[in-house]
């Protein structure tokens, strides 16, 4: 493994004959011409807006909306209030449950796809991704039709006689998790697939030859080696689920409030931008923490494999 990586790494650090000959000024011009526009754009339209949001967390709302530039920590004590903390905790729970379900459905799916003959693999993968390329709101709307008390699922269940009264499916936390799962499941399958597909089948054969049962092989060979893919998939599903406000609104019917709904309302309804910014910063802090844990776990796994 390291022998195949070595030349590429060497090529990256060695400037090469052309790199050594290029005059200093020309290199500076090249750097400015390529990096300048993109980094400049992202600075103006991403970094400055983020810095603005960050600075708002210290201010408070004026009597008629707007931002009063008087520094205080009032917003942070408000976030720590039981009500808001509860909403944040609900969001983490729902996003976490979504991620877990996505993993339970996604792993076997990705595993099977990776075992298919090559030509079928592409078809199976495209079929997983296809719904993802259709409008996110329409995918959510499809669930309203399915889950409504007069909807398809309830009528099918009453028709068969499983239940005699329509179940309350829509506007529940379960409906929100279902909607989030539907929206982001492909993001779990793809990284899992690429991790499982890369796995050397000889490793599983070796494990079987040494007498391990399939379950043992899975737990001590396949799963540990594909954990980086699991981590990536979990982040891909958890991150967009946590900040989502459309699905809780449409499928939760305002009864299941997630932190995204709070942020949206602070910005567009209550017009308390400083507090909305503070809630957003809390979400970012949670995600940064998550990414740090993921990076740490991935590093440990990589270290473990090499040893």
């Amino acid at each position: 493994m390291s022998s195949t990586l070595a030349p590429r790494r060497a090529a990256r650090t060695d400037p090469g004959p052309h790199g050594r000959r290029a005059p200093r000024r020309e290199r500076l011009v090249g750097r400015l011409a390529t990096l300048g526009p993109g980094i400049g754009y992202l600075t103006v339209f991403m970094l400055v807006p983020l810095a603005l949001v960050l600075s708002y967390t210290l201010f408070h709302r004026g009597r008629f909306g707007g931002v009063v530039h008087e520094a205080s920590t009032e917003n942070f004590t408000r976030v720590a209030d039981g009500l808001y903390l509860g909403v944040i905790w609900t969001s983490v729970k729902l996003a976490g449950l979504t991620t877990l379900l996505a993993l339970l459905l996604g792993y076997p799916t990705a595993y099977l796809i990776a075992r298919l003959p090559r030509s079928w693999r592409t078809v199976a993968l495209v079929l997983v991704v296809l719904p993802f390329w259709t409008n996110f709101l329409i995918r959510t709307y499809a669930w309203i039709i399915l889950l409504n008390s007069e909807g398809v699922l309830n009528r099918a269940l009453t028709g068969v006689g499983v239940i005699d009264r329509p179940l309350e499916l829509l506007y529940t936390p379960g409906a929100v998790v279902g909607g989030l799962l539907y929206a982001y499941l492909p993001l779990m399958v793809l990284p899992l697939y690429s991790a499982i597909e890369r796995l050397d089948p000889q490793l599983r054969e070796a494990s079987a030859n040494l007498g391990a049962r399939p379950a043992r092989t899975f737990w001590s060979v396949t799963l540990p080696l594909t954990l980086p893919g699991v981590l990536t998939g979990c982040v891909f599903v958890f991150v967009p689920s946590l900040g989502n406000f459309v699905i809780p609104e449409l499928l939760g019917g305002g009864r299941t409030v997630m932190v995204g709904n709070l942020i949206r309302d602070q910005f567009l309804k209550a017009r308390d931008w400083p507090f909305g910014s503070t809630l957003a910063l809390t979400v970012i802090a949670l995600l940064v923490l998550l990414l740090m844990v993921q990076a740490w776990a991935a590093r440990r796994l990589a270290g473990g494999n090499r040893a």
């Binding site: 990096l35 993109g38 980094i39 992202l42 600075t43 339209f45 991403m46 970094l47 400055v48 807006p49 983020l50 603005l52 949001v53 708002y56 991150v239 967009p240 946590l242 900040g243 989502n244 406000f245 995204g260 942020i263 949206r264 910005f267 931008w273 909305g276 910014s277 957003a280 979400v283 970012i284 995600l287 990414l291």
Partner: peptide
């Protein structure tokens, strides 16, 4: 610079959305 270039892809959309609204207003 690497991190800046990938940030928009990993940032939750609502964060970028409120940031830009605040920026445009400012």
């Amino acid at each position: 610079l690497d991190a800046i270039a990938v940030a928009p892809a990993v940032l939750p959309d609502i964060v970028l959305a409120i940031g830009l609204l605040a920026f445009y207003t400012a």
